[in-house]
Simulated scan of single mutants.
Amino acid sequence: MVRVGIVGASGYTGAELIRLFRRHPEAKICLLAARTHAGKSLPEVFPQFWGLEDEKLIAASPEELVREVDVLFTALPAGEAISYARAAWQAGKKLIDLGADFRFREASIYERWYGLSHGAPELLREAVYGLPELYRDRIKTARLVANPGCYPTAVLLALVPLLKAGQILPEGIVVDAKSGVSGAGRQPKMEMLYAEVNENVQAYNVAVHRHTPEMEQILQDKLGKEVRLTFVPHLVPQTRGILATIYAPLAPGVTTEDLLATYREYYREEPFVKVLPAGVYPRTKSVWGSNLVQLGAVADGRTGRAVLLAALDNLVKGAAGQAVQNFNLICGFPETMGLEDSGIYP
């Protein structure tokens, strides 16, 4: 059994990691760390875990935590995972970070978009971007994995195959994406109150969202040239789910069936990417609680644009589920282990 530790266990992503690892046959959760709830039992923090009163949340130094595990997961705000990554690296342990601290190759980009000085720039060149469908072979040998953001996971899986095939063009891409409120985390915020969110759809961080450079970096890596996109995220009154609608210039003569055929070929052996048939479009409800991504596409010949759609659960494939997928890869387990269950509907 691989000994697993979760730092940031009192957040929504932490809870989802606990849920998934409780049914993983080759992993044992050895510690749950959360400074703000240290000393409490797990059910006191998350009532869905009643019966696990003996599981206590702790607070300890990075060095102390690393000694107790083989793989450490960090689900923390920007800047807070760095000390744990350094401790894990020095101890020869593996770490999967679900935050943003190791997603960028250049510290300057992180510092510009997150407003923080990076405390371990030497580790950026060691980190592997943890999107298995694009970087599987590199993840398998990694000791430090940067789990992608939820929006980038949906957007990159929709864009990369079609851009590489030349069926859409990289100039003038617009991403319109909607997310449920759990994507904002569990810390109380006025704008997340029920009266503020209910019956309200609102854009936020227009053209300045921190996931923008993350998406552009991976697109540049896959295409070998700079790609700029316009990203407009929206908050919608639901708990989970992301639906990304992407508009991109269409190459001459490309049809809807061409786009879908490229998706089907690119993802033909991917267990977690489901390409929908023409005329059927992704829905957040269809992936709720699962590690699946649904993809759809339409070639609008009248306007010369492709309309691409992707749906995922922001807490699973957009966070904890993808982290378990990466865990399986770095540990040599079947990639689907612990993630086989379908979602919950309705």
Rank of each mutant, 00 (worst) to 15 (best):
R240F: 11
E196N: 13
G183A: 12
L260S: 05
G180F: 00
N205M: 09
R186F: 05
L235H: 02
Y266H: 09
Q217G: 13
M190W: 07
E196A: 14
R186D: 05
P132G: 13
M192A: 11
E171N: 11
H211R: 03
G180V: 02
Y263G: 00
T141D: 09
E171W: 11
V201H: 12
E265M: 00
A207H: 15
P148M: 02
K140V: 09
L235W: 11
V208Y: 11
K178F: 04
M215K: 13
A261M: 00
A261G: 01
H234M: 07
R136G: 10
A244D: 02
L260I: 08
E226M: 14
G253A: 07
Q167P: 02
L157A: 04
R240Q: 15
A203N: 10
T239K: 07
P249L: 02
R268I: 04
L260F: 05
G224K: 07
G166V: 12
L156P: 09
N205W: 02
N205T: 06
A177N: 04
K274A: 10
Y204E: 03
G149D: 12
G180L: 06
L259C: 05
G130D: 13
S179N: 08
G130P: 00
N198F: 12
V273C: 03
V206W: 10
Q238H: 10
Y194Q: 05
A154S: 14
A142W: 02
A142R: 08
S179E: 11
R228S: 09
F231C: 08
I139C: 01
A244P: 08
P188K: 12
V275G: 05
I246Q: 10
A177W: 02
G183W: 13
V275Y: 04
E214V: 15
I242D: 07
H234L: 03
T245I: 14
A251L: 04
V236H: 05
V155W: 00
T245L: 15
G241C: 01
M192N: 09
L243E: 12
M215A: 10
I242Y: 01
L223N: 02
Y266G: 07
K225M: 05
K178A: 14
T141K: 15
A142I: 10
R136V: 03
V273G: 07
E270N: 15
G183E: 00
G172D: 04
Q187F: 13
Y267G: 01
Y151E: 11
H209K: 07
K140T: 12
T256R: 04
G166C: 01
R228V: 11
P213I: 14
V197E: 10
Y266R: 13
Y129N: 07
